[in-house]
Design a protein around this nucleic acid. Structure first.
Length: 301
DNA sequence: AGCCAGGTGTACA
DNA sequence: TGTACACATGGC
């Protein structure tokens, strides 16, 4: 096999690539990346060129191979920053671990996953629509819907006989008929929400870079002006896409269930109760949530 | 059979 | 402010 461009990125302190693989193996229905032999394959776009990259590791470095093209040094730099954002390589996890006392009920659960980094959604439209797809339904069904959506409206990159998909773009979403949404198993309201998000993204092309710079409250407020984006969806996007470390999806049933487990509560806490119980998470709400989700997904297996 | 899954908007009082 | 309700499917 020809590899066109090879790159290495130094691993930061506290980085466990196996956890990345676990994360990306969550669902066999996932179409926007594949996990093959301890590596992650993903179609990405840099400027206007369509690349297929393979991410793996050796002892000291994260290895990034571009499988379908040769790229110049400018694009290599862009690829490196893309990877840095995607795997959240710049967060200082030492201070995260230091912020957790040994008496903390979730201490052992979190420290057991040392080196797990909060995997980011690079694209705001993808983050918003994926969150909406996942509202109220179980994750497995959410992946079914996403898979239908990506297969029907995503762009394909063909490489060695296999299709790698790009997530659908806002403009394409506006052309989807009610019947087509229905056949992909979207509810009527979610179809409507997706159109709302598509309009927002088309009218605010610089939204991501703008929102990242805002106060979390202001950013959340703006996201929630979109019909279909409530507090949960906004929280999800703030943590998974907009780099806020202090976003707490208190209305999240999965998070409520883990808290119930860890604190041995009779029933799952309501959002208000969860907010009180997590006061000491201050500053690391997003990371804590991501770790607990990861813990839960491993429990289920 | 009925309830719960990584919720939200709308309709009422 | 607070509560009821529809919405999609699937697993238990």
């Amino acid at each position: 096999m020809v590899i066109f461009t090879k790159m290495k990125i130094t691993k930061p302190k506290h980085f466990n690539f196996q956890y990345c693989l676990e994360y990306f193996s969550r669902s066999p229905k996932e179409k926007c990346h594949s996990v093959i032999e301890n590596s992650i394959l993903k179609a990405i776009q840099i400027d206007d060129s369509n690349l297929l990259i393979r991410v793996s590791e050796d002892k000291n470095a994260i290895k990034v191979d571009v499988l379908n093209k040769t790229i110049g040094s400018k694009d290599k730099t862009k690829l490196k920053s893309l990877l840095t954002e995607w795997f959240d390589l710049e967060t200082d996890l030492s201070s995260f671990y230091k912020s957790i006392s040994k008496q903390d009920p979730s201490y052992s659960v979190i420290l057991a996953n040392k080196g797990l980094r909060l995997i980011k959604e690079l694209d705001l439209f993808e983050a918003l629509t994926w969150a909406i797809i996942g509202q109220q339904i179980n994750l497995n069904f959410a992946y079914t819907v996403k898979s239908n959506f990506v297969e029907n409206y995503g762009t394909k990159l063909l490489w060695e006989g296999k299709n790698y998909y790009y997530y659908p773009r806002p403009k394409q979403v506006l052309s989807i008929s009610d019947e087509s949404f229905k056949s992909m198993l979207f509810s009527k309201q979610k179809a409507k929400y997706l159109r709302e998000v598509a309009k927002y993204c088309l009218e605010n092309s610089e939204a991501k870079s703008r929102l990242i710079k805002m106060d979390i409250e202001k950013a959340q407020e703006e996201l929630m002006t979109i019909k279909g984006v409530g507090t949960w969806t906004a929280n999800y996007v703030l943590m998974r896409c907009l780099h806020f470390t202090n976003s707490l999806p208190a209305k999240d049933v999965a998070l409520q269930n883990v808290i119930r487990l860890i604190y041995k509560l009779d029933k799952k806490p309501k959002a208000e109760e969860l907010i009180l119980k997590t006061k000491h998470w201050n500053g690391w709400e997003s990371y804590r949530t991501f770790y607990l989700w990861h813990y839960l997904s491993k429990l289920k297996k």
